[in-house]
Amino acid sequence: MARPYRSVLYIPAANTRAMEKARTLPADAIIFDLEDAVAPAEKLHARELLARALLADYGGRARIVRINGLETEWGEADARAFARDADGVLIPKVSRGASLDRAAALIPTTPLWAMLETPEGMLKAAEIAAHPRLTGMVMGTNDLAKDLHARFRPDRAPLVAGLGLCLLAARAHGRIIVDGVYNAFQDQAGLRAECEQGRDMGFDGKTLIHPDQLDIANEVFAPSEAEIELARRQIAAFDQARAQGLGVAVLDGRIVENLHAETARATLAMAEAIARSAS
């Protein structure tokens, strides 16, 4: 992963002030939303506003455009409008791998991202993740919960099966994957708990609906100082063991194998990527 995706903030493409403010926010990535956040009567105007906004400098923040579905009257024009100027184009409600073929034809070079938000999408996650043009996956947990007729639970138990299938697919095919939104944007404790759950499951970061959620997501999905120090010590111990002709090392009473050293190197690489993005 060349850049971090700890915090991925949705911004309505019809809101000029919000798009301008996003240039100063500590978000790793921004999803400029032309779909759910824009009323039908404002779709064309929002497209024009976003085209102008993307001419501005957003620093190291990844600029991802969520277009309207290609089956809608706006989708194809959205795709053509942002096929070059964005860092990624996010296709909503992707339910099978073939759903990305039309987008790939309309958007020949810009990385494609897929919203996974339907039961069929969960069941076809591996097929979707295998698409050769796909870069990243975004969980749409609100739509998924609606389709499942699921009730809200702080532990998200009704959604865990779907989240897990998508994570397995993303990791099997080397894709970025970010968790769904937390709706109660004033509930900092609840947000932290859900971020920690997503981090522990293996997500790269979390989609967010309000700037006040950025600090917690950035903190939770970043390696802590203790984790960075441990990673350095694990690498040093393993390298020393290898130099001595040994296959494993022992550190603090625990075995350190090659898999632990690889994880430690990934931790340091993430810390370095975060440091670069902040500079």
Rank of each mutant, 00 (worst) to 15 (best):
Leu123Ile: 03
Ile228Lys: 15
Gly59Leu: 08
Leu148Thr: 05
Asp239Pro: 01
Ala103Arg: 02
Arg151Met: 11
Asp204Met: 05
Trp113Lys: 03
Ile91Leu: 06
Thr110Phe: 03
Gly190Ser: 10
Ala269Met: 08
Phe32Ser: 12
Lys146Pro: 01
Ile91Ser: 00
Lys93Val: 02
Leu44Ser: 15
Leu148Asp: 10
Arg23Leu: 12
Pro154Glu: 14
Lys146Ser: 14
Thr16Trp: 11
Ala236Lys: 00
Ala51Lys: 06
His131Trp: 01
Arg199Cys: 13
Ala161Leu: 13
Ala29Thr: 09
Pro40Asp: 06
Gly88Asn: 07
Ala81Thr: 11
Ser7Pro: 02
Ser95Glu: 08
Phe185Ala: 12
Ile11Pro: 07
Gln240Lys: 12
Arg3Ile: 13
Ala261Glu: 09
Arg233His: 10
Pro40Glu: 08
Asp204Thr: 01
Leu167Gly: 04
Ala114Phe: 02
Met1Glu: 08
Asp101Cys: 00
Leu214Ile: 10
Ala125Ser: 05
Ala273Leu: 11
Ala83Phe: 13
Glu117Met: 04
Ala150Leu: 01
Gln213Leu: 08
Ser279Glu: 14
Arg265Gln: 10
Ile255Tyr: 14
His210Gln: 09
Phe238Val: 10
Tyr5Ala: 13
Val250Trp: 11
Asp87Tyr: 03
Ser224Ala: 11
Asp78Trp: 02
Pro92Arg: 06
Glu229Cys: 15
Leu208Met: 06
Ala243Gln: 11
Ala249Val: 05
Arg254Cys: 12
Met270Phe: 11
Arg192Lys: 06
Leu144Lys: 00
Pro154Asn: 10
Leu168Gly: 11
Leu167His: 06
Gln197Thr: 12
Phe82Val: 02
Arg276Asp: 05
Pro26Thr: 13
Val248Pro: 06
Asp147Val: 10
Gln240Val: 09
Met122Gly: 09
Ala86Arg: 07
Arg84Ala: 13
Pro132His: 07
Gly88Arg: 05
Val138Ser: 10
Glu73Arg: 08
Asp155Ala: 12
Ala86Met: 02
Ala170His: 01
Ala226Met: 14
Phe152Ala: 10
Arg153Ser: 15
Ser277Val: 14
Phe32Cys: 11
Met1Trp: 09
Asn183Phe: 15
Arg66Ser: 06
Ala41Ser: 15
Phe32Ile: 14
Ala150His: 04
Pro12His: 06
Tyr10Gly: 09
Thr141His: 07
Glu20His: 12
Lys43Pro: 03
Ile91Ala: 01
Met19Ala: 04
Met122Phe: 10
Gly162Glu: 01
Ala157Val: 09
Val38Cys: 07
Ala170Met: 00
Tyr5Val: 11
Ala81Tyr: 03
Phe221Pro: 01
Leu44His: 15
Glu20Trp: 11
Arg52Phe: 08
Ala56Met: 15
Ala243Tyr: 06
Gly180Asp: 02
Asp200Ile: 00
Arg66His: 05
Arg3Glu: 15
Glu117Thr: 05
Ala51Met: 12
Arg61Cys: 03
Ala170Glu: 00
Gln244Tyr: 05
Pro119Cys: 08
Lys21Arg: 12
Pro211His: 05
Asp200Tyr: 14
Arg153Asn: 13
Asn183Glu: 15
Val256Met: 07
Gly136His: 00
Val38Ile: 12
Tyr182Val: 09
